[in-house]
Simulated assay, not measured.
Amino acid sequence: MKILVLANFGMGLYKFRKELLEELIKQSNDVYISFPHDEYVFKLKSLGCEYLESNVDRRGTNPVTDMALILTYIKIIRRIKPDVVLTYTIKPNVYGGIACRITKTPYLTNITGLGTSIENKGLMQKVALGLYRIGLKESRCVFFQNEPNKQFFTKKKVVKRRTRLIPGSGVNLKHHVLEEYPNNTETIKFLFIGRIMKAKGIDELLKAAKIVKEKYLNVQFDLIGFIEEDYTEQLKEYEKNGVVNYHGPQNDVHKFIRKAHATILPSYHEGTANVLLESASSGRPVLASKVTGCIETFDEGISGFGFKVKSVDSLVEAIIRFINLPDDKKKAIGIAGRKKMEKEFDRCIVINAYIEELNSLKEN
C-alpha cells in the first residue's frame, strides 16, 4: 500500500509513532510523511519514509492560511495517489480529512486530544466542532486516546461511523526501561516535561514551586520544553530566585526522567499524556491533574497522585504529600507505575490496532 501520514510537526511522529512507521515499512508499504520542515525530517527519512512539505500553522486561525493547507493536501494526495491517509492532531485531522473527501481517498483519524479551542466553550468550540464534523465525516475509523473524548465527540454528533479506543500513543517499554530509583535523598527532584504554556498548567506549577521551596530547601524543580507562550522573563526571574531550573527543549528527556524522583504535569487537558507514560514506564511516580488524559495513566495512591486542575493549593498538597513519603514507598509507587504500563500502555497495542484497520481496508 501507499500510505500518507499527515501531522503538524516531526517530533510527534518520530518520538511517539516511529515504531508504527517502522512496522508499516517492514510490511513493504510505501510510507509518505507530510508536515512543516524541521530537524526531524532527516531522522524520519532515515527510517525509509518519503517526505513532502506542508505548512501547518498549529496555533493560527487565519482562514486563508487554512484554505491554502487544504489545497496543499489535495495537491500532495493527487501527486502520490495514496491508498490510505493517516492523520494526527486537529488541523491535519480536519483539513486532511476534507482533502481526502474531495479526492475520494480513504483515511484514518487520530484524535490526540480535544485542544484548547474545544475545551474553551463558546464560539470557538462551535466552530471547531463544525469543522471536525466536516473533516471526520468519511473517516473509515476514528481513533480516540481516551473514553471521555470519544463520548464527547459522539454526544456532539461529530462522529457517526467506526470508532476505536487506543491507549494514547502507547509507550516504548524497551526504550523507557525500568530505571533504578535515585538513591540521592538529600535533594528530591521533581520534573516537568511539556510545552511552556498556560494550558500545561505552568502558572500553577511556578506558584506551587515557590511555596514548596519556602518550606523545603531540599527540593528541586526541573522544567523541560519549548516556550510556546510569553514566559521567558518569568522563567528567568524564577531561576534567578532559585525556584526552578529551566533546561529548554531536550531531544533526550529520558536522562532527566532517570534522575527525577517524580514527574509533575498540571495540564488543563490531554489526549493521553506521553510524558506520564514515559515516566511511569521508567519507574517514576507521577503527579498529575485530575483531568481526562492524565487520570488514565496512574492509579491514585498506587502509582501516582492526582490534584485538582488549576488549583495551586491542591498541587502543593500533592507535592508535600509525596515529599513526606518514606523512600521505599516512593520507589514502590514507581514500580507500580511500570507494571501498569506493561499491562495497559504497551505501544504494540497501538501498532496492532492500526495494522488491523489497514488490513480491513485492503479486504474491502
Score class of each variant (00 low, 15 high):
K15E: 12
Y354C: 04
F345L: 01
F143R: 00
D346H: 04
L223G: 11
P63K: 01
V31L: 01
V94W: 08
G248Y: 00
K210Q: 14
F9Y: 13
D66H: 06
G168N: 06
L69Q: 04
F190W: 05
E186F: 15
S289P: 02
L265S: 05
R321E: 14
D222H: 12
S281Q: 09
L206A: 00
D222G: 13
D222T: 10
I76Q: 01
V177F: 12
K207I: 12
K343E: 15
L191F: 00
I74L: 07
L178A: 03
P285K: 06
K174L: 15
E344N: 08
L24P: 05
G334S: 10
I134Y: 09
N352W: 00
T163A: 03
K137I: 11
H176D: 15
N172K: 00
L21C: 04
E22I: 03
P148M: 07
P182Y: 07
D222L: 08
K104W: 14
I224F: 07
N110L: 09
G97Y: 08
F345G: 01
F35Q: 05
Q220C: 14
K339R: 12
A260E: 11
E342Y: 12
K236S: 03
F226V: 05
F192R: 00
I211F: 00
G130N: 02
I335P: 10
R164Y: 13
D30R: 13
N93E: 02
E356C: 11
P148V: 04
R58F: 12
N352D: 14
L165P: 03
L123G: 13
D252P: 02
K155L: 13
V41W: 07
R162V: 00
N146F: 10
A280R: 09
A128K: 00
M1W: 06
V312W: 05
T292M: 15
A318K: 05
G271H: 03
K330N: 02
A68F: 14
F192C: 03
N93W: 00
S169G: 03
G113F: 12
E363M: 14
F190R: 02
Q220H: 05
I320N: 11
I90Q: 02
G122E: 00
N55I: 14
E229R: 04
N55G: 10
N184V: 12
I111C: 08
E22A: 14
Y32R: 03
G248W: 00
E19D: 15
A336V: 12
I349R: 03
K343W: 11
R164S: 15
L325E: 07
G337Q: 09
L47H: 07
Q220M: 13
P266W: 04
R162E: 12
K215E: 04
K137A: 12
R79E: 13
S303M: 04
E270W: 01
V286K: 05
I134H: 11
F35S: 07
D328S: 15
D57C: 05
K207C: 13
Y88A: 02
A209R: 10
K343T: 09
A68P: 15
